[in-house]
Write a protein that binds this DNA or RNA. Structure first.
Lengths: 111, 111
DNA sequence: GGAATTGTCAAGTGAATACTTCAGTATTGG
DNA sequence: CCAATACTGAAGTATTCACTTGACAATTCC
């Protein structure tokens, strides 16, 4: 169960942390170095590195070291895998929900 | 930062656990009782209950007790919130990725 | 070359997680 | 009514997690 295809477990786990989502949001604006990412988050460079490993494993980010600076960018693969998962499950859910009919209506007015 | 709207943190956290995704997959087939869910998973009823609380908080499931049986169903609200999050972020990402141009192409042939 | 910058490594800490067990409490069928 | 069924609640445990500290290593700038 390792990472040839994007692992959905890694993906959800990666996105489950607010700091990591913040890192991604930062990277969407522009590629950034590790310390550039760390500063506004108020956490250590080491912590950012640890998050980056997780984001890379989930293929949500990609990093590359040139000289003493590691440049980090957002990567599309993980995101696409997430979309695919959603698509697959939505169709499955909708199929079943339609079959059950009133269940959907019942859920529409939330609790 | 609590749950009036579906909380994206809860959502990702809820979906980050394989057992919980398995529970949802089971519920998609048909509504089930807590013990019906527990049996094929090989975990205790108590453990399932704990997962259900998390799934309910994320609005991915809804449960209701009638007599001594608690019936669990899949709920659409959480799932819709996830789709919305994806939609929002995809457009943001695509905008930026397009602006960067070659970055996308680069990422297409994975690592 | 030496100091500042930028990142890496190893280890540790406290809190959160996913479970369990065990002792209840309702509910229901015979 | 009594026993089985179905869940609830409190507590405990082992692991994982996010993060830190502190000691390095590599690069770059003056």
């Amino acid at each position: 169960m390792r990472n040839r295809p994007v692992d959905i477990d890694r993906l959800f786990h990666a996105l489950g942390d607010p700091t990591r989502r913040a890192i991604l949001d930062g990277l969407v604006d522009r590629p950034q170095s590790v310390s550039q990412l760390a500063q506004p988050l108020g956490i250590t460079v080491t912590a950012v590195m640890q998050h980056l490993e997780i984001l890379e494993a989930a293929r949500l980010a990609h990093t590359e070291k040139l000289g003493r600076v590691r440049t980090c960018r957002v990567e599309a693969a993980g995101f696409r895998a997430l979309e695919q998962w959603i698509r697959d499950h939505r169709t499955a859910w909708e199929r079943k929900l339609d079959r059950l009919g009133q269940l959907l209506a019942e859920e529409d007015e939330i609790r």
